[in-house]
Design a protein around this nucleic acid. Structure first.
Lengths: 178, 178
DNA sequence: CCGCTCATGTAACTGGTTACATGATTTA
DNA sequence: TAAATCATGTAACCAGTTACATGAGCGG
C-alpha cells in the first residue's frame, strides 16, 4: 500500500465527482483550472489512470455509446476508501504549509534593483494578479451551475488567494524606500 | 542561454545576499525555511552550484580559513545579471498564478465525508495552520536581525498566507450543512 | 477537403527526491 | 570516546513535463 501522489488522489476525486469519465475529460479539467499546479499532460494522465486501475482504485469500460473509442473510468469501493483516507483527517504534515509563491521568492531580492524598477516590479506584479483574478472569476462563472456542493467554498479560496496577495503588494509599496 | 529553474535562480539570490557561502549554508537555509517547496537535499544543491559555476554565474574558492575543506561560492557579474533578469519585470506568466494549496484540493471533495467528519476536518486543518503560523513567527524571530532590507515584507507574506487561509476555513465552517 | 477538436497513447527528458557513503570537527 | 553536527558528494529513483504520433469525427 505505497503512498499515492497528490495528483493520483486528486484524479481519484475528479472521477468520483464527475465519473464515469474519460482520461481526456480529466485532462481538460486540469488544463482549464486556474491553478497551474498540474498541466494535465497526456504523459501524466494516461499512465496514471492505468496505474490506478491496476491497483483496483478505478475500473474502466469502453464507451458503448458508439462512435469513437473512449475509455470510461469510474471509481471502485477501494478507490473511495483511498480517497477518504487521503482527504483526512488526519492531514499529513506537508499538506499544511506555507504555500509556494514565485512572487514571494522574487520580492525577497527586490533590493537588488534600482528604486524605480522596484516600483515598476510591484505594479507589474499587481496588474498580473488582476489578470489572474479575472481568469478565476471567469472560471467560476463557467462552473457556477456544476452541482459541486462546495463550489462556493472552493471558489472563494481562489479569490482570496489572489486578493490577499494584492493587498500584500499594496502594503509593500508603502514600505519601499523613496 | 537556456532557461534556469526557479531553484537555480533562488540559490543565485541566496548567494548574492549571504555570499560568499558554502552549499551547506544554502541547504540549511532551505531546510529551515517554513516553506516546504524545496527540501535543500544534497542531491539537489551540490550538482546545482556546480552547474551554475560551469555557466560562470557563480565562482568558488576553497576556504583558506584553515580547518575543513569547504567550498565558498560567490556570485559573478553574469550571475547578477541573470538574477536581475529572473526577478523581472517582466514577470513570466507562470510566476503569477493561483498558488497550489493541498488543503484546497482536499476540501473540494469534503462532501464525500459524513457531516461530523467534515467538521472534524475543518478544525484539524485550522489547528494545523495555527502550528504553521507559530513556526513562521519563530522563523521570523530568528531572522529579525538579518540585514534583509525587505525582511518585513517577506515575513508579512508568510503570515498573511496562513492567516487568510484560516479566515477561509472559518468562513467555510459557517457554510457547512448542519 | 482542410483544419480543428476529440481521444489515446509513447519516448525522451528533467528537476527534483531519498538514501547512502565518507570523513573531519565539535560537544556531551 | 561516543554521538551529533559540519561538509561534501554520488546513485537510484520518481512524478511529472514536452514533444511527438496516430486516427476518428465534425464544421466551414
Amino acid at each position: 500500500m505505497k503512498p499515492r501522489s497528490e495528483l493520483e488522489c486528486f484524479v481519484l476525486g475528479l472521477v468520483w465527482r464527475h465519473g464515469p469519465c474519460t482520461p481526456y475529460t480529466i485532462r481538460r479539467h486540469l488544463q482549464e483550472s486556474p491553478s497551474t499546479q498540474w498541466s494535465g499532460s497526456a504523459g501524466a494522465i494516461y499512465p496514471l489512470v492505468r496505474r490506478l486501475e491496476a491497483q483496483r482504485l478505478l475500473r474502466s469500460r469502453t464507451a458503448e455509446t458508439g462512435q469513437r473509442p473512449a475509455r470510461l473510468y469510474s471509481i471502485t469501493p477501494r478507490g473511495l476508501a483511498t480517497l477518504r483516507a487521503w482527504i483526512g483527517p488526519p492531514l499529513p504534515r506537508d499538506a499544511v504549509t506555507v504555500t509556494y509563491d514565485p512572487l514571494r521568492s522574487r520580492i525577497r531580492f527586490l533590493d537588488l534593483l534600482p528604486a524605480a524598477q522596484q516600483r515598476a516590479w510591484l505594479s507589474a506584479a499587481r496588474s498580473a494578479l488582476e489578470e489572474v483574478l479575472a481568469r478565476v472569476r471567469q472560471w467560476e462563472e463557467l462552473h457556477a451551475d456544476d452541482d459541486e456542493p462546495l463550489g462556493s467554498i472552493l471558489t472563494r479560496s481562489g479569490e482570496l488567494d489572489v486578493e490577499y496577495r494584492s493587498c500584500w503588494l499594496r502594503e509593500a509599496e508603502t514600505q519601499l524606500p523613496l
